[in-house]
């Protein structure tokens, strides 16, 4: 199981609404935001490939999301 910290960049002013959408999904925890265009998020995924797929889908499906930028990846080998 991978645990990653990522920053999500959104259109100006749209971060809170993106946070609301993210919060309703499993496997994603919104940890913070600037109230405007950036969110700090923790994601868990089974593999690196799944993590990448999640990020791509988010950028593609959420029109307010401009980009996903990983800041940290750790592996929980016992999970």
């Amino acid at each position: 199981m991978l645990i990653a910290g990522v920053v999500i960049e959104t259109l100006p002013g749209r971060a809170p609404e993106v946070a609301l959408r993210l919060a309703s999904r499993g496997g994603v925890q919104v940890k913070g935001g600037d109230g405007d265009r950036r969110l700090a998020v923790v994601v868990s995924a089974a593999s690196g490939a799944e993590l990448e797929r999640w990020a791509e889908e988010l950028v593609r499906d959420d029109e307010a999301v401009l980009g996903v930028f990983p800041t940290y990846v750790g592996e929980d080998e016992r999970a």
Partner: peptide, 19 residues
Amino acid sequence: RRSFLEASAAASALAALGG
């Protein structure tokens, strides 16, 4: 272990918000 990883992940993402 998982909590630790999550905390580290969160801290790094929050630090990256910066600005």
